[in-house]
Structures are given as C-alpha cells and as structure tokens.
Design a protein around this nucleic acid. Structure first.
Length: 792
DNA sequence: GAGCGAAGCGCC
DNA sequence: AAAGGGCGCTTCGCTC
C-alpha cells in the first residue's frame, strides 16, 4: 500500500444514505470511505480517520459541526447546516485533517444547483490545488493617533473594499471597515483591514478623506452602504465594484449574500456571522474587519476566475446602481391627508362587509383572512373538494351556488380591503399594534416620503426587483395596486408633475422577434389591434367583426378578452388545466358557447384554445422552445442575441451599423447560466422560455433607465426627478413647461437588432407611450398629473 | 414571545 | 400526475 495515498471520508447522516451513490465522481478519484451512522464526538471521528489514514472529510453531520464550533469557543446549541455549507475546519494531530461541510444530500435533487455546489465544496478538500488561497487576515483600528499612517497606507492600495455597520434604530453608522488590496512587485496580493469607529465629527472627516482616495472601491451590495454614506455626505469616489452584482452577473440563480460568497469563492473559511453576535466591542470590530477581508478576497477571486461573458454581464448591470440609488433616495411624496382619507374609506367599507358576513354566518369571530376558518366555511358550503382558499379556488366555489357566491364574495372583498390597508396604507398605529418598528415611530414614510429599493441583482432575468428601503421603511414600489385607492396618496413634489412612460406590449414583441415567428411578428408590428388580430387568426372570425379600426372601438369584447387570456397562457407554455383555473369555469363555458365547441370537458376546451395559439404561431413551440432546450442542454447557458443601438450609432452608415450589431450579437448580450434541466423538467423549461423575452425587455428598459439618468436626471436636477422603474415603465416627475417627458420617451425607444433562433437578423423598436395626465371629466380640459392615480 | 414557513395576494 | 414566468409583504398558525 502506498502510505502517501490521500484518502477521503464522507461522513453523512441516515438521511443521506440513499443519496451517497450520487456523489460519485466528486472526490477527485480519491479512495473514499462512507459513514452514515451517528458519530457524536470529534475524538471518535479522529480515531476513525487515524486508523484508516483519512485526511479529507466531507460531512453533513451537525453534531461534529457543533463540536468543531465549540472548540472555537462558540456555543450555539444548533448551528444551521445551511449556513455552514462550504465551511472548512481542521482537526486531529497537527490539524492534519481537513473537513468541509456540504448541504444535506437530498439537495442534490431538490435544488437545481445542488450537484454543482456539492462538487465545488467537496473539491475544497479533495482538489485543494485547484483553489487559490486567500490573503492572510490582518486588521487594526483607526485612531486619531494613527489616522495619517492608515490614510497613507490606504492611498497606496490597488483597490479598497468598504463595509459599514449600522444601528437600525436611528439609522446611524457605527463603524466603517476598509480593506486595502495591495499588489506587490512580483504580482503577489496582500490585504490589510482597518476599522474606523464613527464616533465623532473627527472620525467622519477621516472617513471622508479615505473615501476621497482615487483607488477603485469595492462593496458587497453597496447601495445599502451608500444610502447611509450619502446621509453623512461621505459617499466614496470611484465605486466600481460590487461583489453581489458580480455574482449575479455570473450565476444569477445562486444566492448572493456575503456568507454564501465567502464559502463559494474562498477555500479555507468558516461562516462567521453567527460568531459575530457579540457584545464585546473589540470582537464586533474584528468581525466587521472580516467582512471587508471577505469582500476583498471574493472580489479578487471573481476577477481572476470569471469567464468573459460574466464580465460582460457585469459591465451591463453594475452601472445601474447609480440611477437606482438616485431613485431610491428620491422616493415619492406621500399626501398624508389623502392617506388618512383613503384609510377611513376602507375602514368603513370593511366594517360594513365584516359585520354583514359575520351576521350571515352567525359567527361573530369569523376571520376571512384565516385559511383554516375559510376552509371550514367551504366544507359547510358543500365544497370539501376545494382544499385551498385562494381567490381562484373561491371563484370555483362561488359558481356552484348563489349562497356561496354571496358569502365568498364578501370574504374576498374583505381580504382585498385588508390587503390595501395593511400593506399599502399603513400608519403608525398599525405598526404599534403588530410590534413593528418602522420609519419615524412606526410609519411607512420617511420625512413624508415613500422610499423603496430597486435592486438590479434581485431577479434571475435581469429585471430590477424592489423592496422596502435600506432605511427599514417604505414600500415595494413595483406592486402598488392599480386602482386609485393607493396611487391617489402618492404624488409629485411641489412645482412638479408626475408622469409614467411605458414600453408597449414589450414582451409580446420580444417573443416574436426572438422566435422569428413571422405570423407573430406581423401581428405585433402591424397597425391593427394585437388581441383582435389574435382572436381573428385563432378562431377564424373576420377582424372587422371584432375591432373597428376607424373608431378604435372593440366590437366583440368577449372574443377579444378570450384571445387575450389564451395568448397570455400559451405564451408561457401554460398547461390546459392551469388555463382552466386561471380563466375560471365560467369563462371556459363562455368560450365553448362563443366558438360553438363540441367539447364537454373544461380541459378539452382549454386544450383546444391553446392548440389554436400554437397553430397560429407554430415557431413558438417548434423553434423557440426547442432552441432554448437545445442551447441549455449543450452549453448550460442562455445567451441573448440582441443589440441595443447606442445613441452614437445614429451617426453610422447602414453597413457599419449592421457590422457593429452583428459583431456584438455574435459575442452575446446578457448571458444567463442555467442550472435547471429544461429537457426533462417542465417547470425549468417554462422558467427558461419566459426568461428570454422578460430578460430582453428588462435590458431594454435598464438601458433606457441609464439614459434617462444621464441625459435628464443628472443634467436637469432642478426640473426633473427620477422615481422608479416598474418592469416596463419609468416613473418620473418634471417641471411643467419643460420638454422632459418627450425626452424620456426618446430615451426609451431604443432600436434593437436581433438574431432569431434560426439565425435571421431583424431590427425593431418597441414603442413607448407617455402617460401625462387625463381629461377633466367636467371641463373636458387636459390636466397634467400630480398624483399617481392621474397618470393615464 | 420570537422565529419561521405557508398561504394569500399585490404588480408586470 | 401535472406543472406559466418574474418578484416582496402581511397574516396566520405552528414550533421552539
């Protein structure tokens, strides 16, 4: 036997047993033992390894994890394995044995990226030579005495990562951490971290001096830090890097928090966020320093190992942090009086409905928001086959009996009102009731404004995601209800009018040009009403009977609505039963009647409807879905083959423009790495066929958002305000009399050159429509919008 | 009483 | 067997 032979052990739990064979091939060819019996003590494990000459351990055993953490002086009773996946410890004589933790093996199947992560983590101990070792962690406190030294050292850094620690209570920055990255003459990389407690105006001056250094700055999810730094007038110069955005640009489907990035990119690390729960100030500073060290090292690893397409994605995505940050800090003014009125209106309505419903039922304590209680109600109404109580299920039950209709209608009405009040029209007293501490004393508003965050790394497709603001108040701005109830409380600032500009039917147009389906291209590009054209081609009824082009009026609304639903469903590969559910049985029977169909089963009707779509637009399924599956099957990636014309392209001749577009397209636009398996999993297929148009539209709007930022928001800060982006629209306000709205529209109408799945090139532009206000009902005069409810 | 996941629902 | 996609927030109801 070769005594130098390296041996490995998989130490799992009884839950892992069945999955162990699926780890095959991940151990770099090392002879590997397997133990799934309970081993509680480190000593037991040590003896087991010693006896067999094992020096590499891969484990899911939380008892051993806890022992290892105990040894580090950390006594949490139950560490979560999910946090420690990828953490690497050493133990045994001379710390010669390395052990890495991985998620429970079940995840090899339940999570699309399960295999990928397991293999990566296992390679930490079984193929360590494939990992670059991180820099040594060293850190110090910045004091008045050593500040000049620290500043001098940092001024020599190649790059500086920055991380702030905040107090949620009063939005105060407690300390700021820096990690200077230094490149030696031989190319060797070292780092040093510095912690600056922010406890005086002197220390703030120190922070400003460091932030003003020309070195490129690195953050992890830096819009958070920069929101606070802006409050302190201490924003950094030259913020070029963000590790969360880099991760999103590379593996958009994976987590992006620092704990995960740490485990993912660095070999010899232990998850430390649990340990950072400390009351010792010096320890607290040390963990802040570790954050900056991790951010810097993750960045180094990303820079050294990312493929070109991920870098290209990054160059598209990162610039968005600036318009997003501006929009987040701008927010929208809330009319507090309107808020109060809207609440009162809702309270009155809800009170009436609730009293009535409870009286009908004879149950004074009935809660329509309780799934348990509504389920019982369904049973009482003879609908025990319906087991969930969401709107579409209640819709089903309502059709069965007028009494059901009455009672469940009230349930839905009350739920709707409560949703409006609790989510969108919240005031201080609500927060006190539920123990939430938000804004100033519990309201959603921050100095009378609704804030929000807009996150370019928040979705798999490249859309922005939204949530409440970094200051722990505000709203998700992208799901404000459509009616006037909430939007009438949000308005432009004094001296401004509010406006919204939409890309019209963007995803349908994008789908048409991505698939290259000539019928669909004609339908979306023509002058005629898209849904009526669809109704006509789906069901063989003359267009003129459905829509009157001369008056712009719909003549057959039921049929047009039907084709709208079918288009929507089929576009995203919806199954027949789901279409039945989303349309509702009444609409299904209506379709049967309208089209004089012979079928008796709802599913058959839905199947017929869907088949009409695919008959009309055959390339959607036959070329596009097939192309997506094939591309992912062979490359694990989806590449956007579209080029957004740059403003300077206007000066190019036809020939040069085509060359430029083609060269861009052949390199690829936005690329998504795909862990799912569309060939065998319909959910994955649906996600990926939805990705392409959604992502292309997101890119178009993001590009427009950037242009609006540079051409309007930065140039006209006194007469223009950039508020938000809402998936296919941009919300802004402007001083009346300016030409800013038209300029926004110009920024949004970006010509796109695209290569379809079969290789044909085309160019098209999604039209944008301004919504500036509405006609006054009484005077008939056009009135520019002040409130969001008025932008029509 | 805190924490968490599920249910339900708002938007495109 | 059947399965639209992409998000985030509040409430409920359960566990610790």
């Amino acid at each position: 036997m070769n005594v130098l032979e390296v041996k490995a052990l998989f130490l799992g739990t009884s839950d892992d047993k069945d999955y162990v064979p699926h780890l095959k091939g991940m151990f770099n060819g090392l002879p590997t033992f397997v133990v799934c019996e309970p081993i509680e003590l480190l000593l037991q494990l040590e003896l087991y390894c010693k006896k067999r000459g094992i020096t590499r351990v891969v484990s899911t055993n939380t008892s051993i994890l806890k022992r290892l953490l105990d040894k580090m002086g950390y006594d949490k009773s139950a560490p979560a394995l999910s946090n420690y996946a990828g953490s690497l410890f050493t133990f045994g004589e001379g710390a010669a044995i390395e052990i890495v933790f991985i998620p429970p093996l079940r995840q090899l199947f339940t999570v699309t990226y399960g295999r990928f992560l397991a293999a990566r983590y296992i390679s930490k101990v079984c193929a360590p030579e494939s990992w670059r070792e991180a820099t040594q962690f060293q850190w110090g406190l910045i004091t008045a005495e050593n500040f000049q030294d620290c500043l001098f050292q940092l001024s020599g850094a190649y790059a500086i990562s920055i991380d702030i620690e905040t107090l949620r209570q009063d939005l105060r920055i407690r300390c700021i951490g820096y990690c200077g990255v230094y490149v030696g003459p031989e190319g060797q990389i070292t780092t040093r971290s510095y912690i600056l407690p922010l406890d005086s105006s002197y220390s703030l001056a120190c922070a400003r001096a460091i932030h003003d250094l020309p070195a490129q700055k690195i953050f992890q999810n830096g819009k958070y830090d920069n929101s606070y730094l802006l409050r302190y007038n201490a924003e950094p110069r030259n913020w070029l890097w963000d590790t969360a955005h880099f991760m999103h640009s590379w593996y958009s489907e994976l987590p992006k928090d620092l704990g995960f990035l740490n485990a993912f990119f660095l070999r010899k690390v232990v998850y430390w966020k649990d340990l950072a729960e400390t009351n010792d100030l010096h320890e607290y500073y040390k963990y802040c320093a570790m954050d900056t060290w991790a951010t810097a090292n993750v960045w180094i690893s990303q820079l050294l190992t990312a493929p070109d397409w991920a870098r290209h994605n990054y160059s598209l995505e990162f610039p968005l942090v600036f318009p997003c940050l501006l929009a987040e800090m701008t927010g929208l003014k809330r009319d507090m009086q309107k808020l109060e009125e809207a609440r009162n209106e809702i309270n009155v309505k809800e009170e009436a409905e609730l009293t009535s419903l409870r009286a009908c039922l004879g149950l004074p304590g009935f809660n329509p928001n309780s799934p348990v209680q509504v389920k019982l109600l369904l049973v009482a109404l003879g609908c025990k086959d319906i087991t969930t109580t969401e709107e579409k299920d209640l819709a089903k039950a309502r059709l069965r009996h007028p009494l059901n209709n009455l009672l469940l209608g009230k349930v839905l009405e009350i739920r709707g009102l409560r949703k409006l009040r609790s989510t969108y029209l919240r005031v201080e007293s609500d927060a006190k009731q539920s123990g939430i501490h938000q804004g100033e004393g519990g309201s959603k508003e921050f100095k009378g404004r609704v804030l929000y965050s807009l996150n370019p790394h928040g979705t798999d497709t490249g859309r922005l995601a939204s949530r409440e603001h970094h200051f722990w108040c505000g709203l998700q701005i992208q799901n404000i209800p459509r009616g006037r109830e909430v939007k009438q409380t949000l308005c432009a600032d004094d001296g401004f009018a509010l406006a919204e500009c939409d890309l019209e039917q963007a995803e349908s147009r994008d789908t048409a040009f991505i698939s290259g389906d000539e019928n669909l291209i004609r339908a979306v590009s023509g002058e005629r009403d898209f849904h009526s054209v669809n109704a006509s081609s789906f069901f063989g009824i003359p267009y003129e009977l459905i829509y009157d082009d001369s008056t712009g009026k719909t003549k057959d609304k039921p049929l047009r609505d039907l084709s709208k639903r079918v288009n929507h469903g089929a576009n995203y590969n919806m199954g027949a039963n789901v279409l039945v559910d989303t349309m509702g049985l009444d609409k299904i029977w209506e379709a049967k009647r309208l089209l004089k169909l012979p079928y008796t089963e709802p599913k058959e009707i839905a199947e017929f409807l869907l088949s009409r779509f695919h008959k009309t637009y055959p390339r959607i399924r036959n070329a596009y879905y097939v192309g997506v599956t094939h591309e992912i099957g062979t490359t694990s990636r989806l590449v956007s083959r579209a080029y957004h014309h740059a403003p300077e392209d206007a000066g190019l001749g036809e020939r040069d423009l085509v060359d430029k577009a083609n060269s861009y397209i052949s390199k690829g636009g936005w690329t998504r790495y795909c862990f799912g398996k569309p060939a065998t999993n319909k959910s994955d297929l649906n996600a990926y066929v939805a990705h392409c148009p959604q992502s292309l539209n997101a890119r178009t709007l993001n590009e427009a958002f950037l242009r609006v930022f540079y051409e309007l928001a930065l140039k006209h800060p006194k007469t223009f305000r950039l508020h938000a982006q809402i998936h296919d629209s941009i919300l802004f306000s402007y001083a009346p009399g300016t030409k800013h709205p038209e300029h926004v529209k110009d920024c949004m109408e970006i010509p796109i050159s695209i290569r379809d799945v079969s290789g044909t090139y085309r160019t098209f532009t999604v039209p944008a429509a301004l919504k500036l206000g509405m006609k006054d009902k009484t005077t008939g005069q056009f009135k520019t919008a002040k409130y969001w409810s008025e932008t029509e």
